[in-house]
């Protein structure tokens, strides 16, 4: 079982994720239409690029935009969760040992206390996001099964990871569960709302180009994101 999960399943899910992302990225930009979207993308590449970069990086900075500043608590939870779930899979020591073994290279790694902190931060933030979804009427009204599915899917590797980490119960069982749920997330990325992990950049870039080229960018006015 373990061999299967760390062998073919791993390569398979990783491949599906990467190829899926590439295909969807391609489809996104290929589907942009200057006339339907009413943005002269190709005419003003420099302004478009500047607008796109600005719109992405402003939103990547915690409290970097009016939008973030207008909801401080949500923003803290949002970044708490997202920083952790980006850093953990990439920089965890265990993951990098595995990576080295599979692909022959590894990335920068974080120490165990940092990893623990990040994991708990992710869980607390996620708990907040879940509560928010349950309580706030303006969020509840839109919440559907898919939203819960995505939440549970992203919660699973975190919980199983922690159980493995603290060696609660059957270590190998939780380790396998952790690997499996992690691989499920990889596979789900291109096909579900989790696609936002990369389509976020596409969508933000588009709106940035829109404002940079058409809605004021060429008038020398940056959009105050």
């Amino acid at each position: 079982m373990h061999a299967l999960l760390t062998g073919p399943f791993f390569y398979g899910s990783f491949g599906i994720c990467v190829i899926g992302m590439i295909v969807r990225f391609y489809q996104y930009f290929n589907g942009l239409s200057w006339q339907l979207d009413r943005v002269a993308y190709k005419q003003y590449p420099a302004m478009g690029f500047r607008g796109a970069v600005r719109s992405i990086y402003k939103w990547l900075i915690p409290y970097g935009t009016y939008g973030w500043r207008s909801q401080p608590v949500m923003t803290a939870a949002f970044f708490g969760f997202h920083i952790a779930v980006v850093c953990l899979p990439l920089f965890l020591l265990g993951h990098n040992v595995f990576l080295k073994e599979k692909f022959g290279f590894s990335l920068f790694t974080i120490t165990t206390p940092v990893a623990d902190f990040l994991t708990w931060m992710a869980l607390v933030s996620l708990a907040f996001l879940i509560l928010r979804r349950l309580i706030l009427p303006e969020v509840r009204i839109m919440t559907d099964k898919k939203d819960w599915g995505v939440l549970i899917l992203s919660l699973a590797p975190l919980v199983t990871g922690l159980l493995t980490r603290y060696q609660i119960g059957d270590y190998l069982f939780w380790l396998n569960a952790h690997i499996l749920t992690g691989e499920l997330v990889l596979v789900a990325i291109p096909f579900t709302k989790l696609s936002h992990v990369f389509l976020f950049f596409a969508s933000r870039a588009q709106l940035g180009m829109d404002f940079g080229i058409k809605r004021g960018g060429l008038k020398g006015s940056k959009m105050a994101w």
Partner: peptide
């Protein structure tokens, strides 16, 4: 096309 389809798809229903 992709711009609007993606908007509708990735909306996190977050209410921000």
């Amino acid at each position: 096309k992709s711009r609007m389809r993606t908007w509708l798809e990735i909306c996190a229903h977050c209410g921000m």
